[in-house]
Write a protein that binds this DNA or RNA. Structure first.
Length: 719
DNA sequence: CACCGGTTTATTTTT
DNA sequence: TAAACCGGTG
């Protein structure tokens, strides 16, 4: 068994031992924060006789929570299943299952994920007869979520949008409640509401949690921070770990200010800096530091490593994006020849679509790889359909699931019928299920017959669930619904059928974990697990190269890292170029990517790339230019061009590579110029195409292609 | 109601 | 390029 004090440096020891009062640990990349967290928990239990039930440890991912539980088990040999080591959302679900009736929901509430949320918004827009073109449902969602967090902000919107939001938000929220559904944000917001309104519940949890720990604190949003404050009792034994330089989820509401304000909010909070890096070479740390220095308002950290300088960072510039992939593939092969394993290597990129060329090339060259976080198992259509059936079986009045599967497989119940049914149901305050049975509904005879058959199907399935064991029941389900037959008629059906059969395991596991007589409770619990753990599934393959986005790489480490497609507009993304805050987040993303590396870091890009179907000329990413050239070894096209040293802005001759006369420049604008448009506001020229240019505007507008000499465009002088 | 074909649009996404 | 979406036809 591992010892509690083994391999801890002075600062880490301090973070483990300072158990009373608020403590903030600033944990630089690779500084061993998970070790500190788990040792601290072990220390509390082992040396201070704190009962394991009295500790609350909150993480952001299930993976992190499981990792923590595992390590605690290895340190102490105690069972961890009952412990409160979980994500914000699981913790909230656990609290709400016991107390949500106080808020007027049923304890068998179902949790819907982000995709469902978007779909639901779309459905509601349609039902309210609002024009979905004013804002697309996808763009509307974040606004609705913000309003849920703080309803008063609705007043900040200007009119066309405001009245729109005033209509849709209450309708959306009412729909959720009427159907006993919670979205991810509800889990947080309703838990807060519960704790605020119900003194007994609040005191119950204050008695329960003597020590609270929060991981990745830089990624908390305001609501999560409020929840943490609410759960922390008078003794204020709150320990947070985080690193502002690794905050990369602002676009989802995380707020770096939370970590910056912590010492202010919790008076007398101890601050501990973990600056020794156990992961990377000094060359890599230095380079990462050069990049992150570009961000303003940052508390300077001084990460150091005892690993020495190691290898130089290689910057390879390819002619085309195919050449780039080719280079990466060849380099991987030679690294493997040198003794690295495929699993030591990761290829990181900013946007998912970049992975394609690399996939193609790796297949051709027989390099084994896996793409992580692409399309998770539980997001597949067939799984979501079956999940909807299961939700309907728990709650036939769930209108959202009803609509999703009433005509899946096709039962001749079309959009018009569903619309009419919906209208009638909302007018009469009935669920869709009950509306079908109402003799006054305005539907055609044919439609009623078909809908009634569907209702009966759900009731039959409820019966069968009571009679059959879970694996058997899943087969009954796909059989009676006709889903199986539909799949058999489809070329890809075989795989999808097998996917559905995988659900048997989820059900059996839920049954094992939640021993109860009531099968509907087990089913409810399984549906919760699916909703909250959808990302986790990924069965890890052994000894393969990992391809993933920079976001997905957070928290991981690899001996060899390739950061690819380092081109202006791709990374940093052009949408972010005109906004300082967004650009800083991109820079943190670069920092996160670089600091994943233990030994060898490769930065690559290409001069020509297919962007949205057309071949574009690309320039080097700002972030590569921010690394001092003495740390880089130039390869590929870079090698041909002599790089001047010790210059901040490196100016060098670009080889004139077959550029048609209409491309690249015109008399009006150049790439990177800042402009002002009379209706779209400020923007940046991302590309010049003859008389036209592609211009990136901020949020609602996005990238537009406009004529450069258009009178509504004006150039703005630099800075 | 289902299917075909033209048009539009284009990050990242722990739960 | 590719996928999602929309509107018209059979």
């Amino acid at each position: 068994m591992e010892s509690i004090w083994e391999n801890l440096n002075e600062q880490q020891l301090k973070a483990v031992k300072t158990i009373n009062g608020p403590v903030m640990a600033i944990a630089g990349a690779g500084s061993g924060k998970t070790r500190v967290l788990t040792r601290r928990i072990a220390h509390l239990i082992f040396h201070h006789q704190v009962s394991s039930e009295n500790i609350l440890a909150i993480t952001f991912t299930n993976k992190a929570a499981n990792e923590m539980k595992n390590r605690i088990y290895r340190l102490l040999g105690i069972h961890t299943r009952h412990m409160w080591v979980s994500t914000f959302h699981s913790m909230c679900a656990r609290i709400l299952r016991d107390h949500i009736e106080f808020l007027g929901y049923d304890r068998r509430f179902q949790i819907i994920d982000d995709d469902d949320t978007t779909q639901l918004i779309k459905v509601i827009l349609k039902r309210l007869n609002l024009d979905p073109k004013l804002i697309s449902p996808k763009r509307l969602k974040p606004h609705i979520m913000n309003i849920k967090y703080d309803p008063s902000i609705i007043a900040d919107y200007d009119d066309p949008i405001r009245s729109y939001l005033e209509e849709i938000y209450p309708a959306y929220q009412k729909h959720l409640k009427d159907n006993n559904l919670l979205d991810f944000e509800d889990l947080l917001v309703l838990t807060i509401e519960l704790l605020k309104k119900n003194k007994e519940v609040r005191e119950y949890y204050h008695k329960q949690f003597h020590y609270v720990l929060v991981d990745e604190f830089q990624d908390t949003n305001n609501v999560q921070y409020e929840l943490v404050k609410l759960l922390t009792n008078e003794s204020k034994n709150l320990f947070i770990v985080g690193d502002e330089d690794q905050s990369i989820y602002a676009f989802r509401g995380s707020n770096i200010e939370n970590i910056r304000n912590f010492q202010h909010d919790f008076e007398g909070a101890e601050k501990i800096l973990l600056e020794q890096n156990y992961r990377s070479t000094n060359t890599i740390l230095k380079a990462a530091n050069h990049v992150i220095k570009g961000n303003k308002n940052r508390i300077e950290k001084n990460l150091y490593s005892t690993k020495g300088d190691g290898e130089p960072i290689i910057f390879f510039k390819a002619y085309t994006y195919r050449d780039e992939a080719e280079y990466v593939a060849q380099t991987i092969q030679s690294l493997v020849y040198k003794g690295y394993r495929y699993e030591d290597i990761a290829v990181l990129y900013r946007a998912n679509n970049t992975s394609r060329v690399f996939e193609d090339t790796f297949i051709k060259k027989h390099i084994p790889y896996q793409i992580v976080g692409n399309l998770s198992f539980f997001k597949r259509k067939e799984i979501k359909d079956i999940v909807s059936y299961l939700r309907l079986i728990v709650n036939p009045h769930d209108g959202y699931s009803y609509v999703r599967v009433v005509n899946e497989p096709k039962r001749g119940i079309g959009a018009k019928t569903v619309e009419r049914l919906n209208d009638f149901a909302s007018q009469e305050q009935l669920s869709l299920f009950d509306a079908v049975l109402d003799p006054d509904n305005p539907l055609s005879k044919r439609a009623i017959t078909q809908l009634k058959a569907f209702n009966d199907l759900i009731l039959t399935l409820q019966n069968r669930l009571e009679q059959e064991d879970f694996p058997r029941f899943i087969e009954t389900l796909v059989d009676l619904t006709g889903y199986e037959k539909m799949l058999m008629d489809d070329d890809m059906g075989e795989v999808r059928y097998e996917n559905i059969m995988e659900l048997k395991n989820s059900l059996l596991e839920a049954q094992k974990n939640y021993p109860t007589e009531d099968k509907f409770d087990v089913l409810t619990q399984m549906l919760e697990d699916i909703a909250l753990k959808s990302q986790e599934d990924e069965q890890k393959e052994t000894n393969v190269v990992t391809l993933m986005t920079l976001h997905a790489a957070k928290g991981l480490e690899f001996k060899v890292v390739f950061i690819v497609a380092l081109e202006q507009g791709l990374f940093p993304l052009h949408q972010t170029l005109s906004d300082q805050k967004e650009l800083e987040e991109e820079r943190r993303l670069m920092y996160v990517g670089m600091t994943r590396t233990m030994e060898r870091l490769y930065l690559t890009n290409a001069q020509e790339r297919l962007v949205f179907g057309s071949l574009e000329r690309q320039t080097d990413s700002l972030f590569v230019r921010e690394i001092h050239p003495t740390l880089l070894e130039f390869e590929g096209l870079n090698k041909v061009i002599k790089r001047p040293e010790n210059t901040d802005r490196m100016v060098f001759k670009k080889p004139e590579v077959k550029m048609s006369k209409t491309m690249g420049s015109n008399t009006f604008y150049r790439q990177g110029d800042k402009i002002m448009h009379t209706t779209f506001g400020k923007g940046v020229v991302v590309q010049v195409l003859g008389k036209q240019c592609k211009i990136a505007f901020s949020h609602p507008h996005g990238v537009k292609t406009l004529l450069c000499d258009h009178p509504s465009l004006k150039k703005v002088s630099d800075e």
